[in-house]
């Protein structure tokens, strides 16, 4: 799948006023991939999208589309389409005319337009809504219209700018699945912008984590979650215990005065590092088999699991487990070597 990049961003920088929003962004986007730009608000993710869409021109750097620099090409000449935040449907047109908008601009015959619009509407599950006023649709339906309107132009790349942001939690989940399905069906690249890490993890082939205009890490959802390379990524995605320690040697790390086996290599002897421990990777074991001893100081029921804070000699650990313990009880903790993620200090 990852053979040939369709879009390449090369050393893109962008400043608004005196605020630098992008600093030297390098990114390859491949054919057919579902790539997510993930980061907190103001990190520059929407700006990257707008640069790809042609709505912003980068101050410096190149935007290559199939190898050709399109940084100065206006949006209407690019083979990409965008699903905008809050859908941005044309309020004065009905569903049919919204979806047909792009085709009419291309001057297609009415027969072809009719056929394509009904195809597209049936794909997004809105057959029979042709003559509906867009203002009388639910949020989810408006979303589908926006997607259909963008996809009907058969773009090579579809850009989605926080498209699910305005939906409620349940609808959001459904739409995530739906979007993924649509992407498989049309078989084109989706570039998806979100600040919701769960959304990113569940839908993406590739996640690009951004902070402060700089790419923090690019990887598959599993890589990003399990092997965060920077403290920001570890903190932003999922929950974590981040602990300072030293790398004694390959596959051996020390923190909390304890030596731990791990799977990480390639550090200098005794290099100061940080360790990421996911709360669900903290195993509660009988005291005699434990490497860490602690006392439960708080307990919150989270639905599937409980979240405990366990007081140990050096720090409180956040622990997720489905087992039920009483606050105040003494428990033992251990961590498997492959659950320990060692990061360079950033």
């Amino acid at each position: 799948m990852k053979d040939k990049p369709i879009i390449e961003l090369r050393d893109i920088s962008k400043t608004f006023g005196d605020q630098q929003v992008l600093r030297g962004i390098d990114l390859d986007i491949y054919e057919n991939e579902f790539l997510t730009l993930l980061g907190p608000s103001g990190c520059g993710k929407t700006t990257i999208l707008r640069i790809i869409g042609g709505f912003e021109e980068p101050d410096s750097g190149k935007v290559l589309f199939n190898g050709i620099n399109i940084a100065k090409l206006p949006p209407y000449k690019r083979e990409v389409n965008t699903v905008f935040q809050k859908y941005a449907l044309f309020p004065f047109l009905n569903v049919y005319d919204n979806v047909a908008f792009g085709l009419r601009l291309k001057g297609m015959t009415d027969e072809i337009i009719d056929k394509k619009v009904s195809q597209m509407l049936s794909m997004v599950g809105l057959s029979g809504y042709e003559n509906r006023d867009v203002s009388r649709l639910s949020g989810g339906q408006q979303q589908r219209v926006a997607i259909a309107r963008a996809l009907i132009n058969e773009p090579k790349v579809l850009l989605l700018d926080e498209p699910l942001g305005a939906l409620d939690a349940k609808l959001r989940k459904d739409m995530q699945i739906e979007l993924k399905k649509i992407q498989k069906e049309v078989g084109i690249t989706f570039v998806f912008v979100t600040h919701d890490q769960e959304e990113a993890l569940s839908m993406s082939d590739t996640i690009v984590v951004l902070n402060d205009g700089v790419i923090q890490q690019i990887g598959t959802p599993i890589d990003i979650y399990n092997e965060p390379e920077k403290r920001f990524v570890a903190e932003f995605i999922g929950e974590s215990n981040i602990i300072s320690g030293n790398m004694i040697q390959d596959c051996l790390v020390r923190f909390d005065d304890i030596d731990w086996e791990c799977v990480d290599k390639g550090f200098r002897p005794n290099e100061e590092i940080e360790v990421v421990l996911r709360p669900e990777d903290m195993d509660v074991v009988p005291l005699d088999k434990a490497k860490l001893h602690g006392k439960i100081v708080s307990k919150v029921f989270m639905g599937v699991h409980y979240e405990y804070f366990v007081e140990t000699k050096y720090r409180d650990y956040k622990v997720h487990t489905t087992e039920n313990y009483q606050v105040g009880s003494e428990i033992g903790l251990t961590i498997d070597p492959y659950d320990i993620q060692v990061m360079h200090l950033s």
Binding site: F55, Y76, F84, A88, F90, F92
Partner: peptide, 24 residues
Amino acid sequence: NLADVAMDLGATPFQALTKVVVPL
């Protein structure tokens, strides 16, 4: 956004003006 949308869908700036901005 709506003018951007129009251009995104292939409208030249003039078309965006006549087909979207003016109706709005």
